[in-house]
Design a binder for these strands. Structure first.
Lengths: 191, 191
DNA sequence: ACTTTTTTTTGATTTACATCAAATACTTAT
DNA sequence: ATAAGTATTTGATGTAAATCAAAAAAAAGT
């Protein structure tokens, strides 16, 4: 069964019908091909995307010119560069699709207008930020602080059991903050 | 010059006078001694604290029973265990004062009531979460991911130039995710 | 001032993971 | 099916930081 935008929105926090109508009207349905960039380094993130199908990666380019993945979004997840979006400042991060993907998007200015217009939308947005940004980032932070490479990989596998079929070893290794050689050895259990 | 609670609140997002009055009425002024625990592991975080003077550390106890600091709050900062506070679930983290400290506190239930009551308070709370939680945590995350021990120490010194006088080497090392021996060698420039 | 406790420094050794280099396996295009 | 390109694995070696152990310095208690 497919999930509608209405479901996604109402599961975050219930909105009265009249507000929901207004909110839905500001979303756009989009389909993008594999490798498409939702956001490019140096730009300001103007959107909130609600992905319904696909895979996206967030990455930086470090001093040595190497791409470092910082996040993956698989299938039904909210995508945005939080810091750039909330501050409306340019980011160093890029967001790129790794499969053909489907999503709904809403613009920053529309979000701001809706926040001012509807008290209940402000309450909805609070839930969104609390559950989708804060909790997720804190989780990742504690993983990097307290877990070693193998434990981080195990935890990722628990969360996305078939991630290995959708994302290459090199890209996963970069997300785990280890080299691909190390991840290959972890998989072969030679470490 | 001392900063009033009113200043702190209005700098986050401007509230109309009538709302401000209501909000201020839910805060309590508190003074606690050094070593006092604002939050103990296993409890649910019921408060948001606005510290005006003092130092607090956040820490976990890891598998080997060692205390691992995850955060410091110095002087004028907002203190809470974000995940526990927003989910109202027990935390593994503790928050302890490292100096005699002064602060204002507001309870979770009061925040929830104010969010429902005042549209403008909801907008205020969004700014609080966006600026104080999200941005800060993302910053720390990227430090741990991209900087080595020495760079993390340098960055901490930039942010709090006299932190070495207020927080012991062992506690700083733990926050930087390195051993105290390593930090000592960094300071002596033997690394 | 002297003892006790805590914190910081120094040295020797170990470890997890990186780096470099090359071989193997897997994809994609022709 | 074969070649060319890309991704993964394997091996040898290097390194940042951990661990272990002990000395030195600083802080707190009598």
């Amino acid at each position: 069964m497919r999930v509608t935008l209405e479901d996604i929105i109402q599961r975050i926090y219930f909105l009265p019908n009249e507000v929901l109508e207004d909110v839905l009207g500001h979303f756009q349905h989009l389909e993008y091909p594999k490798n498409y960039f939702l956001l490019k380094s140096g730009k300001t993130c103007k959107h909130l995307w609600f992905m319904t199908k696909g895979v996206a990666r967030y990455f930086y380019i470090n001093d040595q010119g190497k791409e470092m993945n910082t996040w993956f979004s698989l299938d039904t997840q909210i995508i945005t560069d939080t810091t750039s979006f909330v501050k409306q400042e340019p980011t160093q991060e890029s967001i790129q699709l790794m499969e053909d993907s489907e999503m709904y998007s809403i613009e920053y200015t529309a979000v701001q207008a809706l926040l001012q217009k509807h008290h209940s939308f402000a309450l909805w947005y609070i839930k969104l930020v609390e559950l989708n940004y804060v909790t997720q980032i804190e989780d990742r932070l504690s993983d990097l602080q307290f877990l070693d490479a193998r434990q981080r990989y195990q935890k990722l596998l628990n969360l996305y059991p078939n991630i290995a079929n959708r994302i290459s070893l090199g890209n996963i290794a970069s997300y785990l903050n280890i080299t691909q050689e190390t991840l290959s050895r972890i998989r072969a259990d030679k470490l």
